[in-house]
Design a protein around this nucleic acid. Structure first.
Lengths: 209, 209
DNA sequence: CCTCAGGTTGACACCATGTCAAGCAAGGAC
DNA sequence: GTCCTTGCTTGACATGGTGTCAACCTGAGG
């Protein structure tokens, strides 16, 4: 819309996002994306080598627009690891709601395309690192239940909070977001955090109030 | 190989299973299945209307061969709900290992094919019912943590034990089966079961030994 | 005025699913 | 032996997707 205008590339990505987000859609072809972007099919190939690479770019694009990094930074300002985690679960539930369609498309592509699968795995690796960060902080504060190794706890946390589980609970089983957040917080609290310290903190909180 | 031999249908299903189970495979075409079954591509269509229906039949076939029902019945003979669940998690880990490839193929098909998605959802519904059974028993025995509704607990349990999570932990993150079983048992124990009763039972067990 | 980057058009190769029609081979009924 | 049916084969075809190619067009900047 301005000067050099749309950077066709972005126009295409936005069109793709719009299509992918359309309810009830089961797959999006390059031709559809092109036409939705008001551009020829070939133009899409001028900007993205393959469908998979377009999807990868789309994921990055959506992340940039919605700012996962900022969300994360905000959560990490909470008082302690336990609070960070609770905060994050709430924010994450909202975040996933915005990226779920793109994630589904990416995962679908991964079913047949090796590269797409790689890209997806890569992303999941990033998420695991985030979770590992949470766990490290918990551990440093002595809040990690002692029957978990840090590595196991990070893997488990990442799996529990995975987009797949979000989709399963919210999209398939129709859970509301608060219901999801409550269940996840509870489960994480009870299975990952040190029960002794939890008790102490609870008591302290009760006394304070 | 003999007289009336293989009921071509079964030969095809076995070939499909073999292919799908092949390591590193990313998708299986009708042509491949046909040739692996030593039969023409059209013959496959004489037995299965569509690729999706073949996959559905394959899932049923595999279930029959490996007997999920029997496994379940065996677990349910355990002394109480808590034990049933622990038992089941162990058996389930082994069972999923045998069906994971077929499940993956089915899920992949669901990404583009509405019917396949339906069939998959149907199956998951069955699994949820099984989990609801466990939860009902726990509840009847007063072993369900009181901050869970039965319905939430069943959904959550089914999600936690979902094939997706199994694949995530064991295939993607390289967990061993015992590691998976330990983590799942622990998590279920701590986030679903009534902590008061748990404590009591533990103490009793310790006293007994 | 020329060039060139970015886009268009239209054709094509390739591969998958699913359909169709004609033919073939063996076994049972008569 | 003939006929019919059943189960399979062969080969062609429609459709729809991805990805490639070549030729052409057009507007902005040197």
């Amino acid at each position: 819309m301005s000067s050099k205008d749309g950077d066709t590339r972005v126009v295409i990505l936005e069109a793709a996002r719009r299509l992918v987000t359309e309810p009830g859609r089961r797959s999006v072809s390059m031709a559809e994306i092109a036409s939705a972007a008001g551009v020829s099919r070939q133009a899409v190939y001028l900007h993205f080598e393959t469908r998979t690479q377009l999807l990868v770019a789309l994921v990055r694009h959506v992340d940039e627009v919605h700012g996962f990094a900022a969300l994360l930074r905000k959560c990490e300002r909470a008082s302690d690891g336990r609070a960070v985690l609770a905060e994050f679960i709430g924010a994450w539930a909202g975040y996933v709601a915005r990226i779920t369609d793109v994630a589904r498309a990416m995962r679908a592509a991964g079913a047949t395309d090796e590269d797409a699968a790689l890209a997806w795995r890569d992303r999941m690796g990033g998420f695991t690192r985030v979770c590992a960060g949470f766990v490290a902080r918990l551990e440093a504060e002595g809040a990690l239940a002692d029957d978990w190794s840090a590595s196991d706890a990070a893997d488990f946390l990442a799996t529990l909070l995975s987009i797949g589980n979000w989709q399963e609970l919210i999209e398939e089983r129709g859970w509301s977001r608060p219901r999801y957040v409550r269940a996840m917080r509870r489960s994480v609290e009870q299975s990952l955090l040190d029960p002794v310290q939890s008790k102490t903190l609870e008591t302290a909180a009760r006394r304070r109030s």
